[in-house]
Design a protein around this nucleic acid. Sequence first.
DNA 1: TTTGGCCCTGACGCAAGGTCAACCTCCCAC
DNA 2: GTGGGAGGTTGACCTTGCGTCAGGGCCAAA
Lengths: 276, 276
Amino acid sequence: MLTIGELASYAGVSVRTVRHYHAKGLLPEPERDHLGYRRYDAGAVVELIRIRTLTRAGVPLARTRELLRAGEEEFAAAVADIDRRLEAEIRQRQRRREHLAGLTAGDGLALPPEVAGYLARLRELGVGERLVRAERDGWVLLAAHAPERVAEWIARKREQLADPRLAGFYLTLGRALDHAPDDPRTAERADELAAWLTRLAEEKGEDYLGDVDLEPPLITLMDARALDTLPAARRLIELLRERGWTGWTKLERVPPPTQRGVCEPFPTSSLRKGWS
Amino acid sequence: MLTIGELASYAGVSVRTVRHYHAKGLLPEPERDHLGYRRYDAGAVVELIRIRTLTRAGVPLARTRELLRAGEEEFAAAVADIDRRLEAEIRQRQRRREHLAGLTAGDGLALPPEVAGYLARLRELGVGERLVRAERDGWVLLAAHAPERVAEWIARKREQLADPRLAGFYLTLGRALDHAPDDPRTAERADELAAWLTRLAEEKGEDYLGDVDLEPPLITLMDARALDTLPAARRLIELLRERGWTGWTKLERVPPPTQRGVCEPFPTSSLRKGWS
DNA sequence: TTTGGCCCTGACGCAAGGTCAACCTCCCAC
DNA sequence: GTGGGAGGTTGACCTTGCGTCAGGGCCAAA
């Protein structure tokens, strides 16, 4: 007669595993000796080896019992099922490895490399850290929602940055946002910005700035994030509005006040509609 | 402000996941509204997306917190570590799939295909089911302990079966074991068997039958399993011993009684020593 | 007024055991 | 006879990343 340790060693499993199988009802509880120790016969070794063979092949314990007594058909079906599961698990890990390979510390964490490059370019141009961070968060939100459109967007952005006036626009913007909201220079910056915007609209067409085909809730979310990140932005937006420009992520001309009622600049209520 | 469901939907995770991250301290608990509902700002979406990015790449939650704030070196080291883990997991599943492909229902469950073939051959020869089962269990034990030696053993066995006298030996044995232990024909079978054994020893050499280089504990275990499976075997072994043959898995001439004391036929005490 | 849809907390379940804790027993050496 | 070490016992909590109840609250629309 064998003790649990001997049984386990013959079958190549741990003692804990044997007890686990008892608890799961996979292996019948043997007799106990006068000390209460389990005592096994050689048949238990064979049974345990058969169980172990299945579990080593990835059969879940719950299915092991049925499979030990299954006919050929049932067995083959179960095996095919388990094989599919294993294959799916392998593919999942492979996908994870690919994701993992694309990860970088810090800024680039939730961003594709082209966005990281774009942010680096902004820094290179001397754009303030605060504005770069706000940009980054916007891109994080965008990349999460529509990753397939990021490349196209980035290309457009880089093209714009190639124009020194747009680069200048960013620098001006960054400087404006570094002021305290009540700094008198903010008004000057707003003048400059409004002038930039107007010039851009004239040169590139009235739709150039507002050509942001994102879902309104996303725009609202990105605006909200920007306003949280950039304390001076709220004041700046007010000032810009007085100068004929409204919005943030999507900049537009202030529409003529033909309709009654106050136009809420950032309708937070619409924020509450996700894309499910 | 966002509800938990909106936050979750923006970040592409489940509500349950968000609460889980709160419980784990990965995502800070936000303010509550007058109903006790959590209310999130847009920054929480960004944070959650960053967490999600890591977990989707296979980073365990426990490491996610550190990685969010890690420097390049630490990050790269952790990523390498996790990548190794994923690779190991993939290899494990691949090995399982290979195991799985080799599985068959019933007999062949814990046995390599060549053993299954050998057992089928025994059945073909008309060897009784009971003996085949006993053989099978012996092979299960053997294959579990020394899988690399199974092929060689099977080759030898098949070679032996090619000799019609050995095939006949098996048939005789099988018939003997199908009798009740006290069946008078058992003695006749024992005579036949002893005659077979003696002839074999003469023809193939005295060591042919006993040339079983297995560890004694394994032999004892296999003997024990055979005796449990074959109720008539115990009596048959006694009768064979009277006729000059002892053992089962490893058959030997009864040694001359030079030493005093009774020779225990199956020292169950030695069964208690596994291979650890 | 009911119904539906969101939210809350708390707790169990899963796969396959690992790892204590607290205790017992046997065997060997001193 | 006593101490140590290597076995054994049960029981219960820990792991991962959530899913899924159970049981209940709130509000708005029909």
